[in-house]
Design a protein around this nucleic acid. Structure first.
Lengths: 205, 205
DNA sequence: TTGAAAACTTAACACTGTTAATTAACTTTA
DNA sequence: TAAAGTTAATTAACAGTGTTAAGTTTTCAA
């Protein structure tokens, strides 16, 4: 039975190889320039072989997306050290902005493209990594309210507001919209100021 | 010289015909299902003919985008009747959410896709309609500050924050992300609550 | 009526995701 | 060890995409 296990392992290895190649590809050449054929070329297999390891392109993108979330969650480990909920929320927002600006292709996949969600819908359930990030957000908001640092409101409402704001900042920036509001060189700075403004504004006086 | 004028008019008519067909197409079949060939079929011309009237597909999308802004600005006319800046800002936000939810395909084009911006960059300048909308936003924010209804801050910072928030709400909703935070049936309601929360929160006590 | 200019179409290129049919490789059985 | 069966990978193909170059038809002026 060792042989079937080895085969299974090889299968997993090629699977991972494909995913790694895909991720490299779209960090290097951008999301819209990633095609099944290009991925196949990188792993030195025929394009159709990929379909023996993944249902379709969406599934590949979905898994890339997942490892994007991993990256993101890693950045948030240090948050546990911050005791003040508001400050922790602020830093979480900063991390979010930085992640989006540093890995725009990943961000695109995780929060803008519909392909990964389509896949998720296809194959049952569980946005495990995404849900995890959202839980973290809700927890902080709840914590802040419990400690009387925020005006009491529905947690989901505030969490949605905060998430939407940082997502709005990043996605508008990525899609070249924010430089219609302020000069291009000031975009990034102003983004941080906006986040700062939000946190200051929502903090209970 | 009347003849050259008539020709020019006919040219403009076909141009408009193409644009109308395009817009119908992607409100009916969705953005990702719009192709040059499909547009051509609707106007009963060869696909390559469209290239005599537009530089490329991006340019067509750009002009569709422009008429999306027109639609949006129309909704905002009634805002002038609201004297309280905060309330006016609130209503502007509501209009924004409603527009995005009602015409997701237009919204996609106007604020999510990069194609129209690529075109804009190609052909010199002027995001006229978009700029107009942003000016309106800045004006209201400035007005609210002047009247002491907001804590004084840089206008651009606050405007960016507000825009980002409503854009975040709409774009996350359109891309099926918000139903990971609250049940699908409550998404729309919670979006409005979040906007409401922001306005209440930013209003000077 | 002829010749030039404008308008339009056909054919083709280089891509895309994906499926069916076919070949190559490896495992198991006789 | 040889034949049979199973798995893995490939080639060929389909239907679609945006776009360009070359050829055809139509329109207009001399």
């Amino acid at each position: 039975m060792g042989i079937v296990a080895r085969k299974e392992k090889q299968k997993q290895e090629l699977r991972q190889l494909i995913l790694d190649a895909s991720m490299k590809l779209f960090t290097e050449e951008g999301f819209s320039n990633v095609s099944v054929r290009k991925i196949a070329e990188r792993v030195q297999y025929s394009p159709t072989t990929l379909y023996l390891y993944f249902k379709d392109k969406n599934e590949i993108l979905f898994h890339c997306c997942e490892s994007g979330f991993k990256k993101m969650l890693e950045q948030n480990i240090a948050l546990a050290l911050i005791s003040d909920p508001i400050e922790r929320l602020h830093q979480m927002g900063e991390n979010y902005l930085n992640f989006g600006l540093e890995y725009p292709e990943y961000y695109d996949l995780m929060f803008i493209q519909e392909a990964p969600m389509a896949c998720l819908h296809d194959m049952g359930k569980g946005w495990s990594s995404g849900d995890q990030a959202l839980e973290a957000l809700k927890t902080i908001v709840q914590d802040a309210m419990d400690k009387g640092l925020l005006v009491p409101s529905k947690v989901e409402t505030v969490a949605m507001a905060v998430w939407s704001m940082v997502h709005g900042l990043v996605s508008l920036a990525i899609r070249q919209r924010l430089d219609k509001l302020v000069p291009a060189v000031e975009v990034e700075k102003t983004m941080h100021e906006s986040l700062d403004w939000l946190l200051k504004t929502m903090k209970k006086a």
